[in-house]
Computed example of a mutant assay.
Amino acid sequence: MTTHKHNSKFKTLTAWVLQSLLALSLAYGGVMKLTIPIDQLAQMWPWVVQVPTIVVWGTAILDLLGAIGIVLPSLLCIKPQISRWAAFGILLLMLSAIVFHLVRGEATVIGFNIFMIVLTLILLRLWKS
C-alpha cells in the first residue's frame, strides 16, 4: 500500500517538474519573440529575419498558450484534461518547427524541438498511468 502511495507521489512530482520545464521554456521563448527586436533575435535565431514578422509573433503566441495550457488547468483543478490537449498542441508545434527547419536545411537546430517532444511524451505517459 505504501509503495503504491509513494509511486503515485513520485509520478505527480515528476509530472509537475515536466510541466514546469515545458511551461518555462515555452514562456521564455514566447516572451523573447514578442519583446526583443527582430534584428537582435536574428543573432540567436537567424530564421526570424527570413519569415514575416507575423510568423514570429504567431509562434510566440502559440508558445505562450502552450505554457499557460500545460500548467494552469491542472494547477487550478479546472478541467485538467485541457492540460493534456495543450500537451498535444505542444507536440504539434514542435513537430511543425522540426519540419520548418528540415525544409530549410537547418537540421542542426532541431535538438531543442526533439527535447521538448521527449519531455511532452514522458508527461503524457505519466498522465496515462
Rank of each mutant, 00 (worst) to 15 (best):
T2P: 02
T3P: 02
K5N: 13
K5T: 12
N7Q: 13
N7I: 07
K9L: 15
K9I: 10
F10Q: 12
T12D: 09
L13R: 14
A15L: 09
V17A: 15
V17S: 15
L18E: 07
L18C: 08
Q19Y: 05
Q19D: 06
S20M: 08
S20L: 12
S20Q: 09
S20P: 12
L21F: 05
L22M: 14
L22K: 03
S25G: 14
Y28N: 13
G30F: 03
G30I: 03
V31C: 02
V31D: 00
V31A: 07
V31H: 03
I38S: 09
Q40T: 12
A42Y: 03
Q43W: 05
Q43C: 04
Q43P: 04
Q43G: 06
Q43M: 10
W45V: 01
W45K: 09
P46G: 10
P46C: 08
P46V: 03
P46A: 07
W47Q: 06
W47E: 07
W47S: 05
V48C: 07
V49M: 15
V49W: 09
I54W: 08
W57E: 11
G58E: 10
T59C: 11
T59L: 13
D63E: 14
L65K: 02
L65Y: 04
A67F: 09
I68S: 06
I68E: 02
G69D: 01
V71R: 00
S74D: 12
L75N: 03
L76H: 09
C77F: 11
I78W: 14
I78R: 10
K79S: 12
Q81A: 12
S83P: 08
S83H: 08
R84I: 15
A86M: 06
A86N: 01
F88P: 06
I90P: 00
L91S: 11
S96C: 11
I98A: 04
V99D: 04
V99G: 00
F100P: 01
F100R: 03
V103L: 13
A107H: 02
T108F: 06
V109N: 02
I110L: 02
I110H: 01
N113R: 07
I114T: 05
I114L: 15
F115R: 07
V118K: 06
V118M: 08
T120Q: 03
L121E: 15
I122Y: 08
L123M: 02
R125C: 11
L126M: 03
S129R: 10
S129H: 13
S129E: 13
